[in-house]
Amino acid sequence: MSAALRVAGLSKSYGGKQAVDRLGFEVRRGEMYALLGPNGAGKTTTLRMISGLLAADAGEIRVFDVDARADPIAAKQLIAWLPDEPLLYDKLTAWEYLEFVAGLWGVDAKSAAAQAEDLLKLLGLWDNRNDRCESFSRGMKQKAVLAGALIHDPKLLMLDEPLTGLDAAASRLVKDLIRRKVSEGCAVILTTHILEVAERMADRIGIIKDGRLLVEGSLGELQSRAGSAGQSLEDVFLQLTATPEAAEKASA
């Protein structure tokens, strides 16, 4: 079975700084992959390149066997990207926002309306559907953006810090929704600084630093790689990224 996402030799530099350096990893269908790394490791840059928002300097990105660099339009049709900041149109209502996003991805009006209704109800925004987004709290905005990301039923969902600013209830709701998408066969890449979330939810974890993949695998595999069986992901993460020597050892 082909991978949902295959990244190989992906590189990007800004000026003199190498933000992503020959990065390679795979995400399978129906899998949740957590991409972790310290601040400035290149996580968001990687996701932006996969989403087609940033041109890669080199490397390969294949989304469900579609070459995303050669045919970005076809790849984008399959992807949804949830940025770390919930960016909405303040002057649009939640309903208008979803309607607009559905239009961008070419979802027909009838299915879009049904999907929007389902998502807004599921995320507890149905009563606010006709309110302008400028009146929303951070959590409501995050939920509205998530609804926008899901409205075209993506096959690959990329979530950049999806739980930031959410209260416990909203956080649970979003996690359940992500799990549901995974169980339906959607591939999910998640970046987060809340390592407990990655530990509990992710099937596999990749840790990057300075734009390079240090290590990847299930939690158990990472623990054995770090020689710290039974420790939490946080301990493993800190151990692997603490010093250049540790990082070198992990990636060897």
Partner: peptide, 13 residues
């Protein structure tokens, strides 16, 4: 480029 991120991540030209 807030909304352009959304627009450019869509499959439109």
């Amino acid at each position: 480029r807030n909304d352009l991120d959304l627009l450019l991540s869509s499959p439109l030209s």
